[in-house]
Structures are given as C-alpha cells and as structure tokens.
Nucleic acid binder design. Structure first.
Length: 483
RNA sequence: CGGGGUGUAGCGCAGCCUGGCAGCGCACCUGCUUUGGGAGCAGGGGGUCGGAGGUUCAAAUCCUCUCACCCCGACCA
C-alpha cells in the first residue's frame, strides 16, 4: 500500500528514463531551485537554489583565497574599443554580446558591451597596475554576473545572464602562468569532487574548442547521468596575447621591458545543473551534505502528547543539532502529514531526515533516515550530533563514489569508428580513443555523431594509431556529446 | 538561426476537428475529524482561454499576424 502511494507521488516528476530533459526541468522547478522569469532566456534563482549556490560559492571562494588570490570587482560595462583590442577574443564573443546604446534618451558616443567575460576590462586595468617585476604576480578573482545572448537556454546549464567567478592573473614568466593555469584546474577538480561529489576528468582543449584568445584551455569535464558531458570549469593560459593587446608590460630584474603572461579561469552557476544531473533520481534531488541548504530536516510526528512532549522534544533536537554546527530545519507545519513531508524533503534532496514521535520521546531517541539510501537508524538523542555528522560524512563520500563508478563504467575505450558510432547512438558516455589531431576530422566526427572532443589527456601516451584516420596518434582524447 | 511542438485558474491538463453556459485533477480558503510514507468529509474562492486584428447573431473553438515557452539540431560555460 505504501509503495503504491509512493508511486503516485513519483508521477509528479517525469521519470529520468522516460524523458531526461523533462525530468531535469521538473526537478529544478518542483524543488524550487529556479523559475522562469519575464525576461527571455533569464531565470530567477529561488531562495532554496540560491542557498545551494551560496554554499558552493563560499567553498570555492575559500579554495581560491587559500591559493593566494584576492577578490575585486570590475564594471559590468566594457567600452566597445576595449573589447575589440584582442582580435580572436572579440571574434569569439561578438555573436553573443548584448550592447548598451543609450543612456537615458541620449545615444552613447561609444557603445558599451554588457560583459560576456572580463578579460578586456581587467587587462586594461592591469596595464596601469603592472610596471615592475615586483608588481607580479597579480592574483585577482571576481564574483559577478555576465551576459551572453544565447539562442537556446536551459535552467542553470545555459541562461542569458549567469553568475560566476572569473580569476585573472598576470605573471612574470610563461612557466609561472602555466603553473597557475594548472593549479586552478586542480582547485576546480578538488572543489567539484570533494565539495559537490561530482567526479571529473581533467584535460586540455583542442584548438577547435579552446577559449577565444587563449594559448591553451584546460577544462574539467563531468559525465551527467544521461551520458552527456558537461564542462564544469575552465582554466586558460592566455600566454602574452592579452598582455600585448592591452599593453601589460613590466621591467624585469635585468632592466628589460617584458610583456606579462596572463591566465583566466571560471566556474559558473552551471555547476548547480551538474549537481542536479549527477546525483538526482526519480524522487528528485539528492544533495551532497557540504552544499545542501539543510543538512537535516526534522519531522515531528503529530500524535499522542504532541504539544506537550513531541514538539518540545523536536525543538530540543533542533537546538542540539544547530549547536553542533549543522544546518537544520524543523518542519512543524501542521497542514501536512508526516508522509507528505518525507516525500517533499526527499524531492528537495535534504541528505538526512530526523523523525521524532511519541515512541521516540518515550525511548529518548530519534530516527535518522538517509536520502541517498533511505536507510533508517534509531539513535539515542544524546548521540544524535555525532551520529548525524558521521552519516553526513558517509553520504558525502558515498555520493562521490557512486558517481565515480558511473563515470568509470561509462568511460569506453574505443579502437574503431563503428564501435564509436554504436556507443554514441546507444548509452553514450565518455569515449576514450587515440587521436591524430586533425581538426577537419574532428569536425567530421561531430557532424556524423554529434560527439566532440571534450579534452585531450596530457598525461597519457597513445598506444596505437588514430581510431578514426588510422594515422599515427598524437593524443589520447575523450569524446562525448556535450551540454 | 533551421526543424518539431505547446500556450485555457498557482501547477498539470480536457474542451478546439464539427462555433452556442469555460471545465477536470492537484493546489488554495473555511470548518470538523485526522497525522509513524503525499489523510477524509462538507462548504467556498479564483479565468479578459498568450496578444492583436478579422469572419460571424455568437469565437477558447474558424482565418491572418504576432509574442512567449519547450524539445531536437548548429553555437556556446
């Protein structure tokens, strides 16, 4: 009977297997992460979704600061002349830039771009701030919003305006810039895996896929549960391209004038989408404890001496958990039954639920239920903070390992194109193959299978010929259909 | 930007073909009984049918234009 009722509930969210896109949209809306807005292509991030973003943001911010960076804030608007200084850069972004042409009713002498990214305005400032080798490295990060006029949008994954952080650094040597680029790639990997429970592959982008204006682009690529890849963060070594375009010069220790070497790296609200698609199931969200808006939701059972005993005990439990440093929500709404609340909070992904009713009050215990496995444990009240912390740690690590198992079983070594096509038209996933490096063939494969090279693995040597051309392979590549 | 689809109550939809009282489920409000896996009964409120124009005695329904959103491509984080 209970099972049937639960099945009824599930019909509110389209099952993942039936229609993944719809499942995703249903979860985002039902869990109140975001809603459509009156502005085309722009979404409203609702409080629950924003709390999730804030937690993720704070954890990443701490990692960025721990590696020596400071936050700053640069303007939203970029004069057209500045944006045009780096040729490849402007060409890459031109199709999706929003322009401000009027101030009030007066037409502006020079159009202002609403930043699609801030290299231009930040580098123009760096040229003022950098004079000497002593001014380097310059390690600055910015949290903000950017606008890219996208034709097709989807909650979190692609919206016209999105939130992100963008780091911009300048260095005295190519080696330092490269070290920085890889260091931040590592920061992203650690953040995604340890804090969000999203396992990733790191690698370098091909010429075709790299950032407009970069020498080299590195990326962290995650595998969503529908077998499509999602780029969850990028780190660019910009070489001296922007330094030359924006005149960032300094006098080195040998009294010679040099152009600086710069990097930029970014991570966006898109990671929230990755979180949903990596961990969610047919009952809704599953949130890793480190970023969950609530670690524990307490559901008091209205029965027996509810007002006199159960509710006060629930409040004490709330206080106990809060004092232990956990994010707690006591759901004492009287208009919903316990069963309704169980389903509601499971749908919203709260990692741990504490049930407390007359029986528990009598036995001085509570029932802790995990969202990920639905396992129940009876825990004496005094032991609850410790037990909850242990369970939350376990949920965090087991979510990562479940996701990692999925990624590994869906990473397919491929030796020939027939196999490649077969997997791409079936379960998809990451396809790992020897690659000759020919850009035209990369386009050809994309046209035929819609798979692109997500990244090349710099640490792996190809052990045979290119799977597609049969020519000698230069790289090991990861192919996938990307978001 | 190309192909396909959908706009009717907060959400999900029926009604449209064949023009004639704007409906259903959930949600919401009031009351009572309930509450350990989405409670029951009774009563109630909420709509310029995406928008504009046209045909008609009469338009959610037919015609024209338009806007928005969704899905699949191409492009991107």
């Amino acid at each position: 009977m209970a099972k049937n009722r639960n099945d009824d509930f599930v019909t509110e969210i389209t099952p993942k297997s039936e229609d993944f896109s719809r499942w995703y949209t249903d979860v985002v809306r039902k869990a109140e992460l975001a809603d459509y807005s009156p502005v085309k292509g722009c979404m409203v991030i609702r409080p629950y979704g924003y709390a999730l973003w804030e937690n993720a943001r704070d954890l990443l911010d701490a990692r960025i600061k721990a590696t020596g960076h400071m936050n700053a804030y640069f303007p939203l608007f970029i004069p057209e002349s500045l944006l045009k200084k780096e040729a490849e850069h402007v060409e890459g972004f031109a199709p999706e830039v929003a322009w401000v042409t009027h101030g009030g009713s007066n037409e502006l002498e020079e159009r202002l771009a609403v930043r699609p990214t801030s290299e231009a305005i930040i580098c123009s400032m760096y040229s003022k701030w950098v004079q000497s080798w002593r001014d380097l490295p310059l390690l600055i990060n910015q949290w903000g919003n950017v606008v890219r006029w996208e034709k097709v949008t989807r909650f979190f994954l692609r919206t016209t305006e999105f939130l992100w952080q963008e780091g911009h650094t300048a260095h005295a040597t190519a080696e330092e810039a490269q070290e920085e680029t890889l260091k931040m790639l590592g920061v992203y990997k650690d953040f995604l895996e340890e804090d969000l429970g999203i396992p990733v592959i790191t690698g370098i982008k091909t010429e075709k896929e790299k950032f407009a204006g970069a020498d080299r682009t590195y990326a962290v690529e995650a595998l969503m549960s529908d077998g499509r890849a999602l780029q969850a963060g990028t780190s660019h070594n910009l070489g001296q391209n922007f330094a030359k375009a924006f005149d960032i010069q300094f006098e080195d220790k040998n009294q010679e004038i040099q152009y600086a070497w710069s990097t930029s790296w970014g991570m966006t609200t898109r990671t929230i989408g990755a979180l949903v698609m990596t961990h969610g199931d047919d009952n809704g969200l599953r949130l890793p404890p480190r970023v969950a808006p609530y670690h524990v939701v307490i559901v008091p059972i209205k029965a027996g001496n509810y007002e006199e005993e159960v509710l006060p005990a629930a409040r004490e439990l709330e206080e106990l958990l809060r004092t232990a440093g956990l994010r707690v929500y006591l759901d004492d709404r009287e208009e919903y039954t316990p069963g309704w609340k169980y389903n509601e909070w499971e749908m919203r992904g709260v990692p741990l639920r504490a049930e407390i009713g007359p029986r528990d009050v009598k036995n001085k215990q509570t029932v802790l239920v995990r969202r990920d496995t639905r396992d129940k444990t009876f825990v004496p009240i005094d032991h609850v903070p410790g037990a909850a912390a242990t369970l939350l740690d376990d949920i965090q690590t087991s979510m990562l390992s479940t996701a990692r198992d999925f990624m590994e079983t869906n990473t397919h070594p491929v030796k020939d194109f027939d196999k490649f096509r077969e997997i791409m038209s079936g379960p998809r996933g990451f396809l790992k193959a020897n690659w000759c490096g020919d850009r035209d063939l990369e386009v050809e494969i994309q046209q035929e299978t819609s798979a692109t090279i997500r990244c090349l693995l710099p640490d792996e040597e190809p052990t045979g010929p290119c799977f597609y051309s049969g020519k000698p392979a230069k790289h090991v590549a990861i192919f996938a259909k990307a978001y």
